[in-house]
Design a protein around this nucleic acid. Structure first.
Lengths: 150, 150
DNA sequence: TTCTATGCAAATGGTTTGCAGTCTA
DNA sequence: TAGACTGCAAACCATTTGCATAGAA
C-alpha cells in the first residue's frame, strides 16, 4: 500500500517533490481499484492536466511505484507495486488484475538463456484467464436451481 | 517459409483471395527480414495503400500466417509463423527476433492455474536480451588485441 | 451483377511536446 | 532568483474508418 508519506519519501530520494497535483493523482489512483488506464486517471482528476497525468505516471513507473500491465486487447493499464519483478494475471471477464510470484518464471528464463545462448535482460509476461470468482459466477448462472435473475 | 501458393491456399480455405496487392505485400514482407513494423511494409510497398497494409496484416494475423511481437520499447512488429503458440526472443542490440519452444511455458501456465485458481485462456511472453552474436561482437570490441576499428 | 477488395483521405485514440506562467526551496 | 512543476493546446504517431471506385467470380 502506498501512502502519501511513503510516496513523498520515494520522490525525495530521487530529488522530486510531492506536489499538490501529484498528491491528488495518488488519491485518485488509489481510489481506482487494482488497475487503471491513464485516461481513467485523467477523468477522475478534473483539476489536473492530461500532460501532468502522463508525466506523473511515467515518473512513478521510473521510480517503480507503479508498473504497466498490457491488457488482453493490447491496451495499457497501470497498477501499484513494481519494486520486485512480478507478473500479472488479468481476468478476461471482470478485468481484475492480480500478481503472481515469479520464482518459476526466473527458472524458465534461466533455462531459455541456457538453451538459446541469449543473455536475458528483461521479459514481459501477462497471463489472461478467468478468475475463480468469475468461474463460480458462471457456474451459478448455468445452474437452473439457483435463482436466475438475469 | 511462406510462398505465394501456400498463402493462396490458406486464404482460399477461409474464403479470401490472393489479390495483386496482397501478393505484393507478401513479397515485401518476406524481404524485410525476421520481423517488420507495419510502417516498414507501408514504405516498402509504395503502390499499396496504408489501409490495405493494415487490413492485410490483420487478416494474416487472424489466419495465423503472421504473429505480433511486442518490442522492448513497446512498439508492435510482425513476423511470419504463428501456427503453434510460441514465444519470442528479441535481441536488444541487433533487434533480431527468434522463437523458442514453449513446452516449459505450458508447464508454467499449468502451475499458475493450479496455484491461483485461474482458468487460463491466453498469455503473452516476450523475452529481451542479447543474442550470442552480439555478445561475441561486444567481446571482440572490448578485447584490445583485435583491430579496434570503431 | 454482386460482393470482395482497394486507395485515398479524414478521423481516431492515446501519448508527447512546446511554451509561457506558477510555485517553492 | 533559479529550477522544478504545471496547464493548455498543438503536435504526433500508429491505426482505423468512410466512401466511392475497381476487380473478380
Amino acid at each position: 500500500m502506498t501512502t502519501a508519506d511513503a510516496l513523498e519519501r520515494t520522490l525525495a530520494r530521487s530529488g522530486y517533490r510531492l506536489t499538490t497535483p501529484r498528491r491528488a493523482l495518488l488519491e485518485v489512483m488509489l481510489g481506482l481499484g487494482d488497475h487503471f488506464a491513464a485516461d481513467d486517471v485523467v477523468e477522475a482528476a478534473p483539476g489536473v492536466g492530461r500532460a501532468t497525468v502522463f508525466r506523473t505516471l511515467r515518473l512513478l513507473q521510473d521510480l517503480d511505484v507503479v508498473c504497466q500491465v498490457v491488457l488482453d486487447d493490447g491496451r495499457a493499464a497501470y497498477r501499484f507495486g513494481a519494486a520486485d519483478h512480478h507478473h500479472h494475471l488479468v481476468c478476461s471477464d471482470c478485468g481484475a488484475v492480480s500478481d503472481f510470484a515469479s520464482g518459476d518464471v526466473e527458472e524458465l528464463m534461466a533455462g531459455i538463456a541456457q538453451r538459446t545462448g541469449y543473455q536475458i535482460e528483461a521479459h514481459r509476461l501477462e497471463v489472461y484467464g478467468r478468475c475463480g470468482a468469475c468461474q463460480a459466477k458462471d457456474a451459478h448462472e448455468r445452474a437452473p436451481l439457483a435463482g436466475a435473475t438475469a
